[in-house]
C-alpha cells in the first residue's frame, strides 16, 4: 500500500462559451497574473492560450494551498503536467511558415513552443518551481498520468510539494483534423486546466492550513481490460475494498458504460459522469479537483475517479475527504 498524499490546493479553469463576457473576464485575469507574477517590474509574457490556462490554474492552486514557494523551499516544489491538445495550432503555424517561406519562415520565438513541455516550463519559470519537472503526453489521460507520477514523487519523500494535473486547449486545427479523420462530433473549441497541489499527508495540518482532501490510491493500465486493471491497481494501492467505494466518477468520454458491470472487482457504487469528461488532458484532474472541493460527497466512502481513452489506456484514482 502506498501512503496517502494530501491535496493541499486545487486550481480549476473551464472556458467553454467564448462569449464576450467570458473573454473579457479572462483577459482581466490574465493581465492581473502577468503583472503580479512578474519580477523586477517586468510582466511575464504568455504567448498562447494553453500557457495562460495552465499558469492561472497553477497559481490558483498554489494560493489555495498556502505553500510557500520561498527561497528555502525552491528545490522542494516540483511539477508534473499532462499536455495533449493545445499546441497543434503552434505546430501548424511553424510547419506551414517553413513550407511557404523556407528557412526564414522559422521563428526562434515560435519554435520553442512547439514542444509539449514548454507549457510546463512556462509554469515552472513563472512560479519559480525548481523541483522535479515532468510533462506527460498520454492523450486524454495525460493529466491522470501526471498525477500518478507526481503522487509517486511525493510518496518517495524529499520534496515539499508537487503541482500536478493537466491543461487542454481544443483548437480549430484539432477539430478540423478530427473531421478529416471522420469523427463528426469532436465538440467545439474549449479550454480547461485542473491543477492539484500534492504534498505528504502530514503537510498542511496547521489550524489555518486546510488540506482539502487525500489522494489515497492510483492505478493505470493498458489493453483490452485496461479499465478493470486500473481500478484493481488503484484499489490495491489504497487497500480499499470495492464495496467501500462511495461513488464513481467517470472522467472521460471513452469509458465503456458497462465497465463496472463487467469488472470482476464489482464496484457497486453509483457511476456519475463528470461534467469535465470532454476536457481531454484536463478532465481527470478537474474531476479530482471537483471531488476535493466537495462537489461529490465522500461521506459514503472514497470517490473513485476513472478515465479511459480510445487507444486502450485507463487510469483510476481514489480520493477521500479530509477529516
Amino acid at each position: 500500500m502506498g501512503r496517502p498524499v494530501g491535496i493541499l490546493g486545487t486550481g480549476a479553469i473551464v472556458l467553454r462559451s467564448g462569449s464576450p463576457e467570458e473573454t473579457a473576464a479572462w483577459s482581466a485575469r490574465v493581465a492581473e497574473a502577468t503583472e503580479r507574477l512578474g519580477r523586477g517590474g517586468r510582466r511575464i509574457r504568455l504567448m498562447h492560450r494553453i500557457e495562460e490556462i495552465a499558469l492561472l490554474a497553477s497559481w490558483d492552486a498554489v494560493r489555495e494551498s498556502r505553500i510557500a514557494i520561498s527561497t528555502a523551499a525552491h528545490e522542494g516544489v516540483g511539477i508534473a503536467l499532462g499536455i495533449d491538445e493545445g499546441i497543434d495550432g503552434i505546430k501548424a503555424r511553424h510547419c506551414l511558415a517553413v513550407q511557404s517561406d523556407g528557412p526564414s519562415g522559422a521563428s526562434p520565438l515560435v519554435f520553442p513552443f512547439t514542444t509539449q513541455n514548454a507549457v510546463t516550463a512556462g509554469v515552472a519559470i513563472a512560479l519559480d518551481l525548481r523541483g522535479e519537472i515532468f510533462t506527460l503526453c498520454c492523450g486524454p489521460l495525460s493529466g491522470a498520468a501526471a498525477i500518478g507520477v507526481a503522487m509517486n514523487t511525493v510518496r518517495r519523500g524529499g520534496i515539499a510539494a508537487m503541482l500536478a494535473g493537466g491543461a487542454t486547449s481544443v483548437e480549430k486545427v484539432f477539430l478540423d483534423a478530427l473531421a478529416a479523420a471522420g469523427v463528426r462530433d469532436g465538440g467545439s473549441e474549449r479550454d480547461g486546466a485542473g491543477i492539484l497541489v500534492l504534498a505528504p499527508e502530514d503537510e498542511g495540518r496547521g489550524p489555518n492550513e486546510g488540506r482539502t482532501a487525500l489522494l489515497i490510491g492510483y492505478g493505470d493500465a493498458f489493453g483490452d481490460r485496461a479499465a478493470t486493471y486500473a481500478v484493481e491497481a488503484c484499489l490495491e494501492d489504497a487497500e480499499v475494498l470495492p464495496k467501500e467505494v462511495g461513488m464513481v466518477w467517470q472522467a472521460s468520454t471513452d469509458l465503456p458504460a458497462d465497465v463496472f458491470r463487467r469488472n470482476p472487482t464489482a464496484v457497486l457504487a453509483a457511476v456519475m459522469r463528470s461534467p469535465h469528461a470532454d476536457l481531454d488532458a484536463a478532465s481527470f484532474p478537474l474531476t479530482i479537483a471537483a471531488v476535493a472541493r466537495g462537489h461529490a460527497s465522500t461521506r459514503q466512502g472514497p470517490v473513485l475517479v476513472v478515465g479511459a481513452d480510445c487507444m486502450g489506456a485507463a487510469a483510476a484514482a481514489l480520493v477521500r475527504g479530509a477529516s
Binding site: 509539449q116 513541455n117 515532468f134 506527460l136 507520477v149 493500465a221 493498458f222 485496461a226 486493471y229
Partner: peptide, 12 residues
C-alpha cells in the same frame, strides 16, 4: 504482455 502503465514522457 504489457498491460501495466504505458506512458509517453516529453521533457525535451
Amino acid at each position: 504482455g504489457f498491460s501495466g502503465p504505458v506512458l509517453t514522457v516529453s521533457t525535451a
